[in-house]
Design a protein around this nucleic acid. Structure first.
Length: 442
RNA sequence: GCCUCGGUGGUGUAGCCCGGUCUAGCAUAGGACGCUGUCACCGUUCUGACCCGGGUUCAAAUCCCGGCCGAGGCGCCA
């Protein structure tokens, strides 16, 4: 294909989106813009499919009737060229949506110079790695479109849900000073002349924010420098964090149940087509999710022939076994205090168990949360027990001198949730520009 | 980080174990031609590939070594 000088858009502006070209418009003029997704020549008749944000529309050119200039332009068209078409709408039951455009003029705004490493329709798609190299084009595939439309719908629905229940959306710093919050590895960076880190969680900030605002949430990125080479880890993910005063972990678990139900319902309302395309059938979860304790989990695993010593975290293998028994949404609560972070509240009656929960879907951990420690003295003790230095948390601990109420919250991994809701096995499919140990571009 | 597996046209793959039959097969994409209702159109035809470097051998896509790149599992993941 020889590159030609593109046409100017000039004073053309879109009058209709593809899906607005319907048989009722018969005889009316329309200008559409979009990308060529297929050119089919059938003797003296040429069918173009143009797709735009909303869908596709067929352009039909009869070689014997079309203006010469239109026929000229056809030569330069191929998949992915971006074009504008102005013409008459014709009702036609043989056309994909019952109508088509018979062009009077075509403006080829940009021709596709190279073959993309995949086809928009059908065929086997290349590995995620190859597609990521040209991700913006890859996301034009109908399935990728469906995934990200669903992601958008979920984000919208999360905000709707939380805002309608009086939670305030907040933003906390992503550049932080201390790397001493605990185990997960942080990305260091140069902050003027000092060392700083990218935040791995808004945890401490959101806890502080319940003092002025009581019920807060944040949807934002978190960064983890773990060398995790799996299909469910990224170095940068979006976390949905919620924190609330005067509640316990049981209340927060109920909130998650309602939130998830709301999200599934929202998807059925707004994303029917997308879910159909992805062949994702979600049953609306019942109003109460199954809830087992850590001890129950150990018993179930024992029955499955897997021994986990009390106090040990659940390995990947253990989670997979558990996921086999419990394939849907469920909670695991009442974890050993020693394997949960310092800010999780130990039970009053049994100090070695804490009011923590993990929210699961099969073997995948979607969220974790719990009741928080609100006593400064206890928090300092817990810090020390976990080998952390209270001094480095001075700015945080200070808040606890001024009437820190009981509070609870959770952090939900949006990307993992989207894996579940869209039925993807690789987390990279649900992130537009995923970051992992080996990928920093695009 | 550890372990395992892989790298063949633009893309997806066959061939590799058991070296010669490979002038590398198929599908799709791309070019040309034909076709007036296609819709992943169809038909004919053409173009296009063995990751890089070294070694073994009469002979390497195939076996060996090193490199680069990738995939999966495990570990890590307050």
């Amino acid at each position: 294909m020889i590159a030609t000088k593109p046409d100017e858009m000039g004073d053309w502006r879109r009058t209709h989106y593809s899906l607005e070209i319907v048989s009722k418009m018969e005889g009316k003029k329309a200008t559409v813009f979009g990308w060529v997704s297929s050119v089919r020549e059938q003797g003296g008749i040429v069918f173009l499919i143009i797709n735009d944000k909303k869908g596709t529309v067929q352009i039909t050119v009869h070689k014997d009737k079309a203006p010469k200039l239109v026929l000229e332009k056809l030569k330069y068209l191929r998949e992915h060229s971006s074009i504008g078409v102005r013409g008459m709408v014709k009702s036609m039951n043989k056309a994909p949506h019952g109508a088509e455009i018979v062009p009077e003029e075509i403006r080829v705004l940009s021709t596709a110079l190279r073959q993309p490493p995949f086809s928009l329709f059908g065929g086997r798609i290349p590995s995620i790695d190859k597609r990521l190299d040209i991700r913006a084009i890859d996301m034009r595939r109908p399935k990728a479109q469906a995934i990200f439309k669903m992601r958008h719908a979920v984000l919208t629905a999360i905000r709707e849900f939380l805002i309608s229940r009086d939670y305030m959306e907040v933003s906390t710093p992503k550049i932080i000073a201390t790397a001493t919050e605990g185990g997960a590895a942080l990305f260091p960076l140069l902050y003027y002349d000092k060392e700083a880190f990218l935040a791995q969680s808004p945890q401490l900030y959101k806890e502080q924010l319940i003092m002025p605002f009581e019920k807060v949430f944040e949807i934002g990125p978190i960064f983890r420098a773990e060398e995790s080479r799996t299909v469910r880890h990224l170095s940068e993910v979006v976390s949905v964090d919620v924190e609330e005063a005067f509640v316990s972990y049981e209340d927060v678990m109920k909130l998650i149940e309602q939130l998830i139900r709301h999200l599934v319902q929202a998807l059925y309302e707004k994303c029917k087509e997308e879910m159909k395309l992805l062949e994702r059938r979600l049953t609306t979860p019942s109003s109460t999710f199954e809830c087992i304790t850590y001890d129950d989990a150990l018993k179930i695993l024992d029955k499955e022939g897997l021994t986990v010593n009390w106090g040990e975290d659940l390995s990947t293998q253990a989670l997979k076994a558990l996921g086999g028994v419990m394939p849907k949404f469920y909670f695991i609560k009442d974890w050993p205090t020693s394997i949960k972070p310092f800010y999780i509240k130990p039970r009053d009656d049994k100090q070695d168990i804490c009011e923590a929960f993990d929210f699961m879907y099969g073997s995948i951990e979607l969220a974790s949360g719990g009741s928080r420690v609100s006593s400064k003295r206890l928090l300092m003790r817990r810090l020390k027990e976990q080998g952390l230095k209270p001094k480095l948390f001075e700015y945080h601990l200070r808040t606890f001198d001024y009437g820190m109420p009981p509070h609870a919250g959770f952090g939900l991994g949006l990307d993992r949730l989207m894996m579940v809701l869209t039925g993807q096995e690789n987390i990279r499919e649900v992130a537009m520009f995923p970051r992992d140990q080996f990928r920093l571009t695009p």
